[in-house]
Design a protein around this nucleic acid. Structure first.
Lengths: 216, 216
DNA sequence: GGACACTTGTAATATTCATTACACTTAGTT
DNA sequence: AACTAAGTGTAATGAATATTACAAGTGTCC
């Protein structure tokens, strides 16, 4: 009956069921990311995880249940890791750079990127997964950045009308370049320095624009 | 033997085979967009298109052949429609607004958006499709914009170091906000005015940044 | 009008896969 | 040690589905 013990802190499980469950989730993630939802086979997952098909069904109900369990767990981890705390007094270049590097770096890790691809591709079939990602990831990062930008505007470091909109734009700008390209071009694997360079350009553009300004 | 007559201009075909082929492509597009590649069924496509399974196989070989035929045709159309010619003397606000509105509007049409979703989702399985999209769509738009920006820089309307990078950033910025949100949130269907507003914000940000500037 | 190529409808074929049944073994608890 | 709940391995079951075969129809061109 898939008795999932309520376990608030997802510590390393050591019970038999817990171990099995972990192995299943790990193998399922692999297979779903490699082959996509439809093409993934339950038998293949069991082959990689060890254990038996029966147990797999007992623990997760059916294929969709397994998929949702795997994906929501990973979305949780990914969105949490994209987040970064910004203390209000951090200078604006530093804050923007930090938040952009963190979120872009995480999203570009191969496992994250393929997860993101899966979420995007199945947005029509599993809208809840897509929405959960949006709410817990991008939206939370955006909200934190908005608060920070509002503070920086108070300090006269920047001039913006709508901090929420500005935050969303900056995040989009930072993410769009590398991540979109990586999704479309399998050869494109930016390294840490590429990310730093891209973020620097974005921060600079966001702050200064391209219009000539008189020397200060 | 799938005798595809070489027909440079894809005018309305009137031959028997041509008509059948058109109906197949139309139905296949529908089904692939609705259900995805794996879940789409050849039988369902024939049911919608009329005609017979045998003819479908004669014309396209197999499922993958049909898929590639449909998708590359639509990618062609979509990427062509995203493009916009910019004459060099157009003022920079106008040029940026025009190119962004065109490409974002096209990409947000439901059929285009689902096509884009399909391309992204299958990027790992059909990398050539993804690459073709990138090369014929975003890259070409980017290149045209880069040339235009270089010209505007000559005219001292803007100051940029690398027109290609600047163009890519602007396009990413313009596209990312609405398109990414639309991919993740099925409820989110921006109207023409939303697009105009978003583009205006992007153009403004791209040109001016958020840093305070002394009154001119 | 007749030949020929293409098309049609239907029914195999053969494979894959989710899901379940069953008989048996094992781990953890008292 | 015995009991119980869960796990294992294997093999049904049943449904989809891609793909092919075949017999007969139909439009087109001479």
């Amino acid at each position: 009956m898939a008795r999932t013990p309520v376990q608030v802190t997802e510590a390393a499980p050591t019970s038999r069921g817990g171990l099995r469950r972990e192995a299943f989730l790990k193998a399922a993630l692999e297979v779903f990311l490699e082959q996509g939802y439809e093409a993934a086979s339950m038998a293949e997952i069991v082959t990689r995880a060890g254990g038996s098909l029966t147990t797999l069904y007992n623990q997760f109900g059916d294929k969709q249940g397994l998929f949702l369990a795997v994906i929501s767990e990973r979305v949780q981890l990914l969105t949490a890791s994209m987040f970064v705390e910004l203390s209000a007094h951090t200078p604006v270049e530093t804050g923007l750079t930090r938040i952009a590097e963190q979120s872009v770096t995480k999203l570009l890790e191969p496992a994250s990127l393929e997860l993101y691809r899966l979420i995007l591709g199945l947005g029509a079939k599993f809208p809840d997964v897509a929405t959960a990602f949006q709410k817990n990831g991008p939206d939370r990062v955006s909200a934190a950045l908005a608060a920070y930008l509002a503070d920086r505007a108070e300090a006269r470091e920047i001039e913006i009308e709508d901090p929420v909109e500005a935050a969303y734009l900056f995040i989009s700008l930072a993410r769009a370049g590398l991540v979109t390209r990586a999704l479309l071009d399998p050869e494109f694997r930016p390294c840490a320095d590429d990310i730093k360079a891209s973020v620097r350009t974005c921060v600079n553009l966001f702050l200064n624009g391209v219009r000539p300004r008189p020397a200060t």
